[in-house]
Amino acid sequence: MPDFDISPILESWQFLATGIGVTILLSILSMAASVLLGTILGIARVYGSRPLQLVITFYVDTMRSIPVLVVIVWIYFAVPILTGINFPPFWSALIAITIHITASVVEIVRAGVESIREGQCRAGLALGMSWPQVILNIVLPQAAIRMLPAIGSVLSVTIKDTAIASVIAVPEFMKRAETVASQSYQPMEVFTFAIFVYFLLLFPTTRTVDFIYRRIAHLGRS
């Protein structure tokens, strides 16, 4: 068993720590944007006009068919050629990951909303509510709770997708770890350390979502 020398990690700890910061920032921003966009598009998918539904379905199915790597690379390299706009790596990654993850959120919102029984809507309408009121007060709150576990796993996927952004040199943690590993010629220690870091980021995330869900699940059961 070869020696384990963690000195390169200690020497570059700030470099690596800022990488973790970028990972977290990129994850949170992508997630927030995806949830916002995904909810709007998801509601449109369920309640919108038929042509709108078809367009959104096509978008969702396309994102299901194309790897996020391809989207990231396309946004970063191809969009500047098409439009002349140059996105810095971080923003390219943010846009690409958001586009990819939004599609998942749309499907989750659709499933959540459709799982609310018609009787619930009719009860709201019978009270004299308008459709927007029914959606806002009755459907969405219950759907939101039901969607929580799935959203939790989407968050997990988002964090993992930020590591893929390393291929366009976004200064997130994966890229930083890669840099330190190659410069120090000690890939074993550095990548093993990277495994610890990502595990510590991801494991509590899904567990926390599970925990919250278990506490409030009864509020979404009708």
């Binding site: 893929i164 994966m174 890939p187 074993m188 990502y198 595990f199 991801l202 899904t206």
Partner: peptide, 17 residues
């Protein structure tokens, strides 16, 4: 709970060691 790309890198660089 770890990104696949990291598993790929780890396998490539560390398994030979």
């Amino acid at each position: 709970n770890i990104p696949l790309i990291l598993i790929v890198y780890w396998s490539f660089y560390v398994i030979p060691i």
